[in-house]
Design a protein around this nucleic acid. Structure first.
Lengths: 199, 199
DNA sequence: ACCTGAACACCGTTCAAGT
DNA sequence: ACCTGAACACCGTTCAAGT
């Protein structure tokens, strides 16, 4: 029994192996982005990466572990940029700080909308402890705490969660309509968030 | 070639056949809700519905058509309740009307959160012309139009789209945290929407 | 340490045969 | 008109054999 393993089975140590893992991950990302989860087959990934199916299973114990690795990679890069935005926001007034934080979220999502949308969906289904995603929420929470005085909300954790949800869904809705202007989207989201949080 | 068929292959005419289709659909909904899309296999659906796999394929040309049917069913019932809310809202002040509309959306989503979440995700991937979902958006658009004077927005279609997105994501976030109090959730969403739309 | 590809169980889908 | 289940191609995963 035991929960299914979702972490990499073994770390690549030689450069050749690192290249293999890299090729597998970017092939998976490409397929997920272009054709969606249905077409993400381990055989297709191995073929597109130019390695044998056996090599794939040497580093990933199963297909879900592949997706999990993509999620970790994505939320890792998100965490980085949100953390930086959080540091910048510390010395700013509420609205400017909020805008900087929102910008980092919008940029991340708008970078590869189709891929990020799928990953976000899978993230909720996979039993992974996504440390990076949690830390991104914590940054938002810390920002809200700093401005608690002007906020309406009682539960800061829930509020940070809601802020990320709203930002995600508004970014996605905009991307779906074909909007690409980060500033316009960002301004709209900040307005929605201000209405939600303040007063 | 040609796009994959997503509509029912043939309509059941005899009562026995209608019962078969009904059993298939509710088995599919149950599996999707309980175990998620990965476990939704045609064999599992047929087994749980108590019919042979051949019977399933008599009414649904492929697995996606099954999901498409669930989506149609869900957005059909959503449309109904949103349309009613829209009629009620017509004679109300802005805020009360908005609340009534939001309530119908929240209720629908909170009814079977896991199922609706999966269906919403699949809906974006499937090339279906979802008339009911579009009509639900149109109801919201009409409501916004009625109160255009007090709104900030320029593009009413985009605004209606955003309102539905925000409502969905905030409802989902709340459901994920275990919240079940419709009034509390509804009030929070209305506040966010007011901030987003007005001024 | 790393890679390969045949092999097996299972899933989507079809079809010939039934009532 | 409706139902059945064996059959086939394909996908996830393993494993014995290689460098």
């Amino acid at each position: 029994m035991g929960a299914m393993a979702l972490v990499a089975r073994k770390q690549p140590v030689q450069p050749r192996a690192r290249a293999t893992v890299e090729a597998i991950l970017s092939a998976a990302a490409g397929i997920l982005e272009k054709d969606g989860p249905t077409r993400l087959t381990t055989n297709a990934v191995a073929a597109q990466a130019g390695v044998s199916i056996g090599s794939l299973y040497q580093y990933f114990p199963n297909k879900q572990a592949l997706t999990a690795a993509l999620i970790e990679r994505s939320s890792g890069s998100l965490e980085k940029s949100v953390a930086q935005a959080g540091r910048d926001a510390k010395t700013m007034l509420f609205e400017a700080g909020l805008r900087v934080l929102v910008r980092s979220l919008v940029r991340h999502r708008l970078d590869r909308p189709a891929l990020e949308h799928t990953l976000a969906f899978e993230e909720r289904r996979l039993p992974l402890e996504d440390g990076a995603a949690k830390r991104a929420t914590a940054v938002m929470r810390a920002f809200l705490e700093q401005h608690r005085g002007r906020l309406w909300v009682s539960d800061l954790n829930a509020a940070a969660d809601d802020v990320l949800s709203m930002t995600r869904s508004l970014t996605e809705a905009a991307a779906r309509r074909g909007e690409r202007n980060v500033e316009v989207i960002e301004q709209r989201i900040v307005r929605a968030l201000r209405g939600f949080l303040c007063r």
